[in-house]
Write a protein that binds this DNA or RNA. Structure first.
Lengths: 257, 257
DNA sequence: GTGTAGAATTGTGCGCGATCAAAGCCTACC
DNA sequence: GGTAGGCTTTGATCGCGCACAATTCTACAC
């Protein structure tokens, strides 16, 4: 794990933590939190940087506090595919397993609250509330993965792009600011590159681009800038996204894949 | 939840349980297991029967003890897609959430060891080892889901079929007998219908059929009967399945999707 | 302003896989 | 034994989405 900036944090950091209420920490009792504050390190990663490498023996486990982290799988012939995204509050890494089957990379500039994996596991064995919090977060993450699967499968490329835009616009008001205001209009900030987004949605960047502009031609969205998308007609976009998005897009879930 | 056969079970059942060592029970301490034996009910489902319905408020949580269970998502326009499969030892249902976003259905005749969800949650809050077991199983299931995603994505239809056959032949020696012996040869029993398998692999039954016979034309497999597939040339099949199957197919993981 | 590298967009042909249609096959039930 | 209905297989056609390449746009340094 490459740590760019590393510093000790006083216990007060947890009190002003932006993701405390939406992460595993929400379940943790006071004694455990005090202990965690003593053990945690914050780490900053710049866009594109690797957090945990596929194949490595992971010694770290963390919680995203800002930015977007992508999970990336690299095939033996060097191709990479974006499996999913992690947002603030989601867990990076995996307890009780050292060897990583895929990588975690910063998809945007991101900050994490990290722990030594062994230390964290040890603390879990002593703190029921921490293990419970980890379980709850994991279950939520699994729900999100399953919803994501439903969202991708049986949809054409354009429907997937439309569905993703809806998903993003539905989570606009969570933790981080994914939406920018230009004048008085609400505009989505994709924040990820075309290459990453295309890989995430299982298509080529070219197809992604075509689909986006096809949605624009239909009057559903307006491409203000390559990464800034304004949703002009929510109903139209929902229509173009295909059936059964209700419940998949509108839930307060964060992680995908 | 439709329970076909329901009966009380004496404590001795756990001792001869076929999935005890590969399920959450493996982590549970003796006191908790005694309690669990008192609370559990076994249920039998015949192929095609619904175990938990999408949209229902689930009161049940269970462990697959034999057979294959499929997770199915139904779109609002009535289409269904198979999201994944659960094998013996996997968990059916979800603790701490009542409303089901998808259905669980018996893909073959199947038996489950079931609990009242509330009772199970209650027991977890009192038994650290049970919650730990649930966490470990959930993490393993999430790993499997991610592997499954890697297996499906970026592959052609024929590669997906080949990959699935490899996955099944690699798990041949787990819990249930997925393999039949015809004479002295080892033959895979698909056990699922073409329609289910095609849906699971995100293609039409027609395409699945074509791909299977294409693999046969290449000499990789032999279709003994619609549901009985003999793997003739493992290396050839691996070749036709595309890159990076190592680690995805060969792990002792059960659940997919 | 200018240069340059990287990202994003557009163009074109083609193969894969979906769709529709129909025939074979197996099983269950009468 | 016969028949009906399901599942499986095969055939023909068509459109989506991919590959590859060219072009335009953007960002950032100087």
């Amino acid at each position: 794990m490459t740590v760019v900036s590393l510093q000790n944090i006083s216990q007060s950091v947890c009190n002003e933590c932006p993701v405390r209420k939406i992460s595993l920490c929400d379940h943790v009792d006071n004694d455990t939190r005090t202990e965690m504050c003593r053990l945690l390190r914050t780490a900053t990663f710049s866009r594109g940087q690797s957090i945990i490498m596929q194949g490595d023996t992971a010694t770290t486990l963390g919680v995203v506090t800002s930015g977007v982290v992508k999970t990336v799988f690299m095939t033996e012939d060097g191709d990479t595919q974006v499996l999913g995204l992690l947002f603030p509050g989601d867990i990076v890494g995996r307890a009780f397993e050292a060897e990583m089957r895929f990588s975690y990379e910063a998809a945007t500039d991101a900050t994490l609250c990290t722990f030594n994996r062994r230390t964290f596991e040890n603390l879990m064995s002593r703190s029921t509330s921490l293990e419970h919090g980890y379980l709850m977060t994991t279950l939520a993450q699994m729900d999100a993965m399953r919803s994501w699967t439903c969202l991708l499968r049986g949809r054409t490329a354009r429907q997937r792009v439309a569905a993703y835009l809806l998903f993003r616009s539905a989570t606009e008001d969570t933790a981080d600011a994914y939406v920018e205001t230009i004048g008085d209009r609400l505009v989505l900030n994709l924040r990820l590159s075309r290459v990453d987004l295309a890989s995430l949605l299982d298509m080529t960047p070219e197809t992604f681009c075509r689909c986006l502009h096809s949605l624009a031609d239909q009057g559903a969205v307006h491409v203000c800038a390559p990464h800034l998308i304004e949703v002009l007609d929510d109903a139209r976009l929902r229509d173009l996204a295909g059936p059964s998005l209700e419940g998949l897009v509108e839930d307060p879930q964060r992680a995908v894949g």
